[in-house]
Design a protein around this nucleic acid. Structure first.
Length: 433
RNA sequence: UCCCGAGUAGCUCAGGGGUAGAGCAGCCGGCUGUUAACCGGCGGGUCGGGGGUUCAAAUCCCUCCUCGGGAGCCA
């Protein structure tokens, strides 16, 4: 059966020949003695046309038994036909029902509410729009690996079950034998730093978990993060790496996913402008800018969503905001020698309201300073023993960042909400399907 | 957690004190080029749950639940 059953996107090579394709029925239309069946196989769609007077009665009867999402093997001669969606059509002479589909398939070719669609995510995934998003995500993921591979980075897989270390936000916990609680990783960074001391340039690529009760278009409780960590990179090197990286990912999507972006009706003009260098806006200058624009945010505050939009609208490509006050940022960031009130860090804000897609920093490499920060933040000192060791045995200048995959995909695809950027999104009130 | 908004047929919604509605989907019939086809017919309801006001509540009041949008936090 596998022989000569091309996939739908290969059918243009089979014009004039009789082939069999397998897939799922998406549309059925009948005019009494002529009928149309559109099927999908994951690579595209093909319309089959059946003329009652020209085919075997048994085939016509099987057409009548078709329902939406029936899986079928459809056989016929492929020809060009401009009235057919996609320009190709199959003159069906054979039809085999592989798997029946119940009459109450819930998804219709019309508007649905988001609650209903998320409840039916396992079916929603079958739509052309969701396929386009999945293809862009796949391309971005591959581009990430290619980017780092070409630059001699080693991919390191860090643990998902961890002791209580990492960010301050909510943790998911689970029992772990006689060791007390284990927590789902919020970041692989600390392990990445250990690996950078071993291998020089590394990156992680994996799921991370935040038990935050946040209900916004920019948050998931489970999301994928890419975290490079580079020995001997300072904060400036770090930002150069980030702008090269992000520009490369966008370029790859533009070059290889043009058809998908078109299905998503993505205006690609803003993406075409994503080239290095990006603007580097010092935190202090950002505050001045915000004050000019009427914000009440003052020096020392973290930047809110409103502030980020005010900054982003000033530029036509991603913008770095760098060197935040120490109090607004994590304990592991290196003190800024030029202004000890601040740390050497950067947030990369994406255009068009997609917010922070990267958070990065140079890491504190001085043992005493790092220990002081851990104590000041009242973190469990013993849990960070191995992390502090990295500063006791050959400490090194190093920097890294975390890129949120779903935010990046949502931005490139122009999605209104992160939940479409992953096949089965995890939100605070959604654990299934 | 806080602030808004919404829950009526499988779906998308109208109806806002007086016998529950439409379109789509489904089913039956018709149609030889359909594109979310079209035309005719049929079936389909705990009006989110509970309590209250009233002769009478989908409709007014209270309360809880669920969902959506936003904030905070962050990627």
């Amino acid at each position: 059966m596998t022989l000569s059953t091309p996939r739908i996107d290969e059918l243009k090579q089979h014009v004039g020949h009789t082939v069999t394709v397998r897939g799922w029925v998406t549309h059925l239309r009948s005019s009494g003695k002529i009928a149309f069946v559109v099927m999908r196989d994951g690579t595209g769609q093909i319309q089959g046309v059946l003329v009652k007077t020209q085919i075997e009665p048994a085939v016509w009867e099987r057409f009548a038994a078709l329902t939406i999402e029936t899986s079928v093997a459809m056989t016929g001669e492929v020809h060009t036909e401009e009235r057919s969606p996609g320009g190709l059509e199959m003159a069906v002479t054979g039809l085999e029902i592989l798997g029946e589909s119940a009459l109450d398939y819930p998804i219709q070719p019309k508007e649905h509410g988001i609650d209903f669609l998320l409840d039916n995510r396992h079916f929603w995934l079958r739509s052309p729009r969701q396929r386009a998003i999945a293809r862009v995500r796949n391309e971005v993921e591959q581009a990430i690996h290619d980017f780092f591979y070409a630059r001699g980075f080693l991919r390191v897989d860090t643990p998902i079950l961890t002791a209580a270390i990492g960010e301050r936000a909510g943790l998911f916990s689970t029992e772990y034998f006689d060791e007390g609680n284990a927590y789902l990783a919020q970041t692989g960074q600390l392990y990445g730093e250990a690996a950078a001391a071993a291998f020089g340039r590394i990156y992680t690529f994996g799921p991370t978990f935040r038990a935050e009760k946040s209900k916004t278009r920019r948050h998931l409780t489970e999301f994928w993060m890419i975290e490079p960590e580079v020995a001997w990179n300072d904060s400036d090197d770090n930002m150069r790496l980030q702008e090269d990286f992000v520009s490369y990912l966008v370029r790859r999507a533009l070059d290889r996913c043009a058809a998908d972006l078109q299905i998503l009706e993505r205006d690609t003009a803003p993406l075409e402008r994503v080239t290095p260098p990006f603007v580097r806006l010092d935190y202090g200058d950002a505050i001045s800018l915000l004050k000019r624009k009427g914000s009440t945010t003052v020096w020392g505050d973290d930047l809110g969503a409103e502030d980020e939009s005010l900054i982003v609208e000033e530029y036509d490509k991603p913008v770095f905001v760098m060197n935040y006050p120490r109090e607004a940022k994590a304990f592991y960031m290196k003190e800024n020698p030029a202004d000890p009130r601040t740390v050497l860090c950067d947030d990369l804000l994406a255009p068009e309201g997609y917010g922070e897609i990267i958070g990065g920093s140079q890491r504190e490499d001085d043992y005493e300073r790092l220990l002081a920060r851990i104590r000041a933040e009242k973190l469990p000192e013993d849990a960070y023993g191995w992390y502090l060791d990295l500063r006791r045995y050959g400490t090194f200048v190093h920097s890294g960042f975390g890129l949120g995959l779903e935010r990046t995909v949502a931005w490139i695809c122009g999605l209104p909400h992160l939940r479409e950027a992953v096949a089965f999104p995890r939100l605070m009130n959604r654990l299934r399907p």
